[in-house]
Every structure is written in structure tokens, then in C-alpha cells.
Simulated assay, not measured.
Amino acid sequence: MESAQEAWNSGSVEGVLDKYVDDIVYTTNTGGPNGESLTIRGKENVRLRFQKAMEVIDSRSHLESARWENGLVRTRLTAELRHRATGHCLQLSLRQVLRFRGFRIAEMQDFHDAAKLAAFWRLIGDPLSRIKNSAESV
């Protein structure tokens, strides 16, 4: 979990994906075409989403807390997204629920401030809009 976060902070999508199982299930409470929840299945589809985001933003997160409970890891993080072209920044907090298979992440659920995150993507021009429809069909 911590090495995946370090890879994310360094901008290494492949470093993050190395910490996931091939059939990862990634769910976020925002990210669908109208800001609704979105589930992406499989490392290749997650790669596409993360690469599109990392093309336009720098993102840094800081783990505030983590606890193991009933086979799940629950985390709280703070994060900052910075749009490279304009310098617009978004600071937010989020929660995650992770399930592991061995030492790799098998399932990850992100819970953001959906309205705040959607407003940021609308402000900078959402690079993920091109892949949302294809990711939903997976």
C-alpha cells in the first residue's frame, strides 16, 4: 500500500500498477460521465485511466491513517492535484478501502469529495472524458 502511494507520488503509473493484481477492481465514488460512481476492472483499464490523468496533473498524496479491519485496510489520505498547464490546485481528503491478495492490491475503493473533484475536472477540462464510456463497458 505504501509503495503504491510512493509510486503515485513520483508519477509512476507502472510503479502503482506493479502493486495491483492483474484483475484489480477499482471503484471510485466519482468519475462516471456525470460524476457518478465508476468501477474499472483489470490492470489495463486502470492503466488507461491513470495515464490520462497523469498526462495533465501532478498528484501527491499523504497517508494520514490506516487500519486493518475484517480483512480490509481502511485509509484516510490528503492529496493535492495540480494542473500542469494552468497551475490550478485542488487540495482534498479521501478515504480508501483496500482488499489484498497476497501482498498485492486486489480491490480498491476511493471515496472523494465528489462535487469538489468534479468541479476541478470541469475547470481544467476533463482528460478522462474520452475514456469514461469505454471503461464503463468493461
Rank of each mutant, 00 (worst) to 15 (best):
N29P: 05
E136R: 13
A66K: 05
I24Y: 02
I105E: 00
H112M: 13
E136I: 12
S137F: 09
N34Y: 12
H83S: 04
G125S: 10
D18A: 15
A7L: 03
R84K: 15
N9D: 11
I105P: 00
E44S: 14
T30L: 07
D126A: 01
F103W: 07
T86Q: 04
S65H: 13
S93R: 12
N133D: 11
N29W: 04
G35P: 04
Y20F: 15
A135N: 07
E69Y: 13
V46R: 01
L63A: 09
M108A: 10
N45W: 03
E2I: 13
K43Y: 02
L48H: 00
D22P: 11
A114R: 03
D110Y: 07
I124W: 02
Q96I: 09
L77C: 11
K52N: 10
K132W: 06
V13F: 03
R130K: 13
V16D: 01
G32A: 05
K43S: 07
R84H: 06
A85N: 05
A7M: 06
E136V: 09
E69N: 10
A115R: 13
H62C: 07
I24L: 14
T28Y: 02
L92F: 09
E2M: 11
E6V: 12
T39W: 01
E136D: 05
L123S: 10
E69R: 08
H88Q: 14
G15Q: 12
F120C: 07
E2T: 14
E36A: 04
Q96R: 10
L63R: 02
L92W: 01
I40V: 15
V25C: 08
E136L: 14
K19F: 03
S37L: 08
L92T: 15
K52S: 09
R101N: 09
D18R: 15
G35F: 08
E80D: 05
R130P: 00
R95A: 13
A106D: 02
L77M: 11
F50H: 00
S12M: 03
R74G: 04
T86H: 11
Y20I: 05
P33T: 14
T86R: 08
S59F: 01
D58I: 03
L17S: 03
S93E: 15
A79I: 06
D23C: 12
D58C: 01
D126K: 02
L90F: 07
L38H: 11
Q109R: 14
S3G: 03
L48Y: 00
V25R: 15
S37A: 15
L72A: 13
R47F: 11
D18M: 05
T30A: 14
K19G: 02
R41G: 04
A114D: 03
L94T: 01
D58G: 04
D18E: 15
R104M: 10
L128W: 04
L123D: 09
E69I: 07
V46P: 02
L77G: 03
L17R: 01
A115N: 10
P127K: 14
V97T: 02
S137E: 08
T78S: 14
S12W: 09
T27W: 13
R104G: 04
G35V: 05
K116H: 11
L117T: 06
R101G: 05
